[in-house]
Design a protein around this nucleic acid. Structure first.
Lengths: 197, 197
DNA sequence: TTCTTCCACTAACAGTTGTTAGTTTTGTTC
DNA sequence: GAACAAAACTAACAACTGTTAGTGGAAGAA
């Protein structure tokens, strides 16, 4: 099973296997001995590659965060309407998650086990990211693209709830491509299920 | 702090405090000594009231599940259109969660720590619940209420993602009432954000 | 008073946790 | 073959885990 990661450095292999373990059992319920077993080594041997269990979690969480930020920055730089930016932002978010669904699942579900000050830093990054999506929605309301009476906080939290659960149920064997998936998701959230009269 | 629950039996107090702890730190990261401390007693004393740590989780998860099922059954019995059933189902789901946001958070986030055969039973209940919502969407498409080209699996998972994250960010101090919240959420998912031309 | 129910206590268990120190094996490069 | 770095090993640590056994006190009913 480790052969699939043969080209990765040993440290990267450790982190990848840890991501799978954390996703499956949760960070706290995953022991270093579990992780070692997945790699076919002793628990103590892990410390030749990583400093601590939490360092793995930090790497996973902050690497994902950086990818999300880069994706959003690119969208913001484009000369399109707010509603189109929202659409592109959603597609970008889905694309980033699709590149590593396992890490994405850990990112969203296990970040709370970070200790301070990393947890605080992580949450600040996240609130910033969310607020920039919220801005798209507010701009879209101001321009008349979106309905006037929308509760923007509710809207943006609903949006992220949908996006963030995706890694938990979406299987990579699915035939649907990330781009297509993102497009459908964006359409659903922006246009709704209802047939336009 | 335990005074707020003064009218509850001691066992109910234990379960309530456990729910808060599990929500905050997660099931695995919560120790029985943590829980005992919240109640001002020793860890061993907890076992006068409960059989095991997992029994608490089971109680929380299956009690919530029963409430969700009851809510859905009522909706299904009503003589209304599929799209209206979907709307009422969403509102009902939000109402049930709002009655106990803490238990709802544990229900959605920590159920995976149930051991067999309880986990299997829980997942069966959940898939059944989800499929009944999926049926609303399929019926809505068949009747022409909803768009023809909807991916129903994607739609229903998006729906539940939105609903299930609610307990994590929605604060009970909010002025918005459950009924209103449910209505807004249903409107957003069914009609979308976009202004109808 | 005595009996019973509830609820707490102390003491201890066997197993698991993340991590360390120091050592040895393995594979590559000179 | 010597030297070197990478990566594994054994042994052990202190702390923490859920849980059991047995005990005692307090409140209400008989």
């Amino acid at each position: 099973m480790a052969e699939a990661y043969a080209t990765l450095s040993r440290k990267e292999q450790v982190i990848r296997q840890a991501a799978e373990l954390f996703k499956e059992k949760g960070y706290s319920a995953s022991s270093m001995r579990d992780l070692a077993q997945k790699l076919g080594i002793e628990a103590a041997s892990l410390y030749s590659h990583i400093k601590s269990k939490e360092e793995i979690l930090r790497t996973l969480c902050f690497d994902m965060a950086a990818e999300f930020r880069a994706s959003l920055a690119e969208v913001e730089s484009q000369p399109v309407s707010a509603s189109e930016k929202l659409r592109l932002g959603i597609i970008g978010h889905v694309k980033v998650m699709s590149k590593d669904l396992t890490a994405a699942a850990v990112f969203m579900n296990e970040h709370r086990h970070l200790s301070q000050p990393y947890l605080r830093e992580f949450l600040l990054l996240r609130i910033n990211y969310i607020n920039r999506f919220k801005q798209f929605i507010e701009d879209g309301i101001a321009s008349g693209d979106f309905k006037k009476n929308i509760d923007t906080k509710l809207a943006v939290m609903t949006l992220f709830s949908s996006l963030n659960w995706l890694p938990l149920w979406f299987s990579p064997e699915s035939t649907i491509e990330p781009e297509n998936l993102g497009t459908q998701l964006a359409d659903m959230l922006i246009n709704g299920l209802k047939q336009n009269a």
